[in-house]
Amino acid sequence: MKLKVCGMKYVENLQSVAQLQPDYLGFIFYEQSPRNFEGVIPEIPKTIKKTGVFVNEFIEILVSLVQEYKLEAIQLHGDETIEYIQEIKSHLKNVEIIKVFGIKDDFDFSILESYKDEVDYFLFDTKGKERGGNGVKFDWLVLKKYPYQKPFFLSGGIGPNDIEEIKKIKNSGLPIHTVDINSRFEIEPGVKNIKLIKKFKNEFKGL
């Protein structure tokens, strides 16, 4: 199981997070987000996959940003269609595609059927007023109904004290690939609490 730290914004802070060697670092390219990333991504370890988070972005802009920042994964957080994803794949090679779906109290997993052969991973986040970063968990028991073997990222309000609950999901046999942390590990939007992440990562390694 892998760890993603999302919502990186400031160079010095992201360098400190990168020293902790998460598997993914997420950069949000969405102007309405308080964690919208602009600027330069410094050199980080090659073991960390730079992930761009996009919301209904024009394909030309998305492709341009992937190439500019040498992103290795893209996370689609909007209402992107199958056709949209296929178009992206015609322009980009060797880039992981993660499609996000918001969950509240229940979810119709059948809507994933047409996506599962087009994306590398699903990501399940809490359905809220913002496109992510709400700091609230959905009911993880809903995942018991997940019918596929397609691996997924778990996101949405995950905090420092959730290790045992994450362990339960892993031990249930669900194909959880990555745990995605963000707002509950922040001092302010885009500024991560390094001590909290380090402690969480150390506990996470033992799962």
Rank of each mutant, 00 (worst) to 15 (best):
residue 52 G to M: 04
residue 53 V to W: 07
residue 61 I to G: 01
residue 62 L to A: 09
residue 63 V to L: 04
residue 65 L to M: 03
residue 65 L to S: 02
residue 67 Q to R: 13
residue 71 L to D: 09
residue 73 A to L: 00
residue 73 A to S: 13
residue 75 Q to N: 00
residue 76 L to K: 12
residue 76 L to I: 13
residue 77 H to D: 07
residue 78 G to A: 06
residue 78 G to R: 05
residue 86 Q to E: 15
residue 87 E to S: 13
residue 90 S to T: 13
residue 93 K to M: 03
residue 96 E to C: 02
residue 97 I to Y: 11
residue 99 K to L: 04
residue 102 G to W: 11
residue 107 F to A: 04
residue 109 F to M: 06
residue 109 F to L: 08
residue 110 S to E: 13
residue 113 E to N: 14
residue 113 E to G: 10
residue 113 E to Q: 15
residue 114 S to C: 12
residue 114 S to A: 15
residue 115 Y to T: 10
residue 118 E to G: 02
residue 118 E to Y: 12
residue 118 E to R: 11
residue 119 V to R: 10
residue 121 Y to M: 05
residue 122 F to I: 02
residue 124 F to M: 09
residue 126 T to C: 05
residue 127 K to F: 14
residue 129 K to G: 03
residue 130 E to P: 01
residue 134 N to F: 12
residue 137 K to Q: 14
residue 137 K to E: 04
residue 141 L to H: 14
residue 141 L to W: 08
residue 143 L to P: 01
residue 143 L to T: 01
residue 143 L to C: 01
residue 144 K to D: 12
residue 144 K to P: 00
residue 147 P to D: 01
residue 148 Y to K: 11
residue 153 F to S: 06
residue 155 S to M: 09
residue 156 G to H: 10
residue 159 G to W: 08
residue 160 P to R: 14
residue 162 D to F: 12
residue 162 D to A: 14
residue 162 D to E: 05
residue 163 I to V: 12
residue 166 I to V: 14
residue 166 I to P: 09
residue 170 K to D: 10
residue 171 N to M: 13
residue 172 S to Q: 03
residue 174 L to R: 00
residue 174 L to V: 07
residue 178 T to S: 15
residue 179 V to W: 05
residue 183 S to V: 01
residue 184 R to G: 01
residue 185 F to G: 02
residue 191 V to T: 11
residue 191 V to Y: 10
